[in-house]
Amino acid sequence: MINKYIPSVKDAVVDIFDGATVMIGGFGEAGSPIELIHALIDQGAKNLTVINNNTGSGHVGLAALIENGQVGKMICSFPRTANSTVFPDLYTAGKIELELVPQGTLAERIRAGGAGIPGFYTATSVGTVLADTKEHRTFDEAAFSGKQYVLEKAITADFSLIKAHQADRYGNLTFNKTARNFAPIMAMAATTTIVQTSNQVEVGEIDAEHVITPGIFVNRIVTVSNPMQESKLIAKGVSYP
């Protein structure tokens, strides 16, 4: 019998190792798997490379993971956000590495990684400093002629931490509104995809036509019934741990 549910967030992240590459879903607080991130803080793995669109806010969730000294490198598109001081301070002090990637290129590099495509060409960033060291080429095909493109390489990860709205024991997932963002592509791009959900449902409850992430991309699921909300924690001045 397939049952990807496991008892606790602690069990879910137990084997994340020092030096691992970890994708973390979310766009700002929307879709951020805070409970899984806090479990990773408790677990203590160090020198992580983390992929997220941002770098977290306040002193909870991703910002707390960075503040706890567990992240050696961030790959992201927008490391500045309201209430975001942890990453900027460490970056300015030269204590954390940054790979800045345009948001759509970041998404496609993740998607490519999950789809078994080692690289692709895009017009994004051509003529900018972000393309300085990249391979350029042109194409003759009518739809793409007359423009320069740069080679972008796929990103894969050892682990993905994402938040879903509903999950069944096969790992079929749905998401809530714009909390979906990077989660489905990150689920595809990691060796081990770990999901937190507030709605454990029976197999068959999610109509097959409405499954957003098919269970094949999911390895572990943990129920977090009442997930914390990052902005509320920040408003209360909460720091984790």
Binding site: S77, Y91, L98, L100, P102, Q103
Partner: peptide, 16 residues
Amino acid sequence: KNAIPAVGGAMDLVAG
């Protein structure tokens, strides 16, 4: 040199 670089989706939008 002192700024934290942040690009978001701007380069994707103008290219696409």
